[in-house]
Simulated assay, not measured.
Amino acid sequence: MKGSSFFGKVIFFVNSIFAILLVLGYALPYIPPHIFPRLSVLSLLLPVLLLINAVFLVYWVLRGKRQLFLSAFVLIIGIGHISSLYHFRGGSGLTHQDGLKIMSYNTRSFNINGWSKEANIGDRIIAFLTEKNPDIICLQEYHPTYTLSQEQYPYQYKKMSERSKIFGQIIYSKYPIIHTGALDFKDTGNNVIYADIVVEADTLRVYNVHFQSLRVSSKLNALTQEDSKRLLGRMGEAFKKQEAQVMEFLESEKESPYPVIVAGDFNNSSTSYMYRKIKGIKQDAYEKVGTGTGRTFTLDFIPLRIDFILADPKFEILQFKNYDIELSDHYPIETVIHKKFKF
Score class of each variant (00 low, 15 high):
F12I: 02
V14N: 02
A19N: 11
L24S: 14
Y26Q: 10
P32S: 08
P33W: 06
H34F: 11
F36Q: 04
L46P: 01
I52C: 01
R63P: 00
R66D: 04
L68K: 14
L70H: 03
F88V: 10
R89G: 11
G91V: 15
S92A: 12
S104P: 10
N106D: 03
T107W: 02
S109M: 00
F110P: 04
S116M: 06
I125W: 00
A127Q: 15
P144H: 08
Y146H: 12
T147R: 13
K158L: 12
K158S: 09
K165T: 15
P176R: 11
A182G: 07
D187V: 05
A195Q: 08
A201G: 12
V209K: 10
V209E: 13
L214D: 04
S217G: 00
A222Q: 04
D227G: 03
V246N: 04
Y258L: 11
V262L: 15
N267C: 02
M274Q: 13
K277P: 05
K279P: 06
G280L: 05
I281W: 14
K282M: 15
K288F: 08
T293Q: 09
T293I: 13
R305A: 05
F308P: 06
F308T: 10
P313Q: 12
I325R: 00
E326D: 14
H330L: 02
H330D: 01
H330V: 02
I333D: 08
V336H: 08
K339P: 09
K339H: 11
